[in-house]
């Protein structure tokens, strides 16, 4: 049995999760990554996607809309712009996220980056089964 690492998921409005996880899968900007105890210290940005935390109680999934993660050997803190537990996810929230991102994409000069966010969101919607 591998050791555990402290997993914190915070959104600007509240702390969503704080638990001892054996493995956390995060949607990094440059590809998904699985983080276990003793991982090298990394700071990475996140793309919209699904985050999975495996702990003694099972697997918890969250939909995150972007943000960043700070990983040290014993901790992983995910600071998500918006995060919703997968089971509470509704098509309405999903549509809202896509609408927000599209709105932001319309005014942002960096079209590539924002278009990618929208595309990531749509892919995430497919992955979430909605």
């Amino acid at each position: 049995m591998a050791g555990t690492l402290q997993f914190d998921l915070v959104s600007p409005e509240r702390r969503l999760a704080s638990l001892a996880a054996t493995e956390v899968q995060i949607p990094g900007a440059e590809g998904d990554m699985g983080v276990m105890e003793g991982h090298a210290p990394v700071i990475t940005t996140l793309r919209p996607g699904i985050l999975r935390a495996t702990s003694a109680e099972g697997v918890k999934s969250y939909v995150v809309s972007g943000g960043f993660a700070e990983i040290t050997g014993a901790n992983i803190s995910v600071l998500a712009e918006q995060a919703v537990p997968l089971e509470e996810m509704t098509p309405a929230i999903m549509d809202q996220m896509v609408a927000d991102a599209t709105l932001a994409a319309a005014v942002n000069p960096d079209r590539d980056a924002t278009d990618k966010v929208v595309a990531d969101l749509l892919a995430m919607r497919a992955a979430a089964g909605q």
Partner: peptide, 27 residues
């Protein structure tokens, strides 16, 4: 004080984070 790896590089992360940091401060 911890030395981190950055993914993507530091500059890109900072450019991504600063607008969020502004929003956070406003919040």
């Amino acid at each position: 004080g911890t030395v981190y790896d950055y993914e993507p590089d530091e500059g890109a992360i900072l450019a991504d984070l600063l607008p969020r940091a502004v929003a956070t401060q406003v919040f």
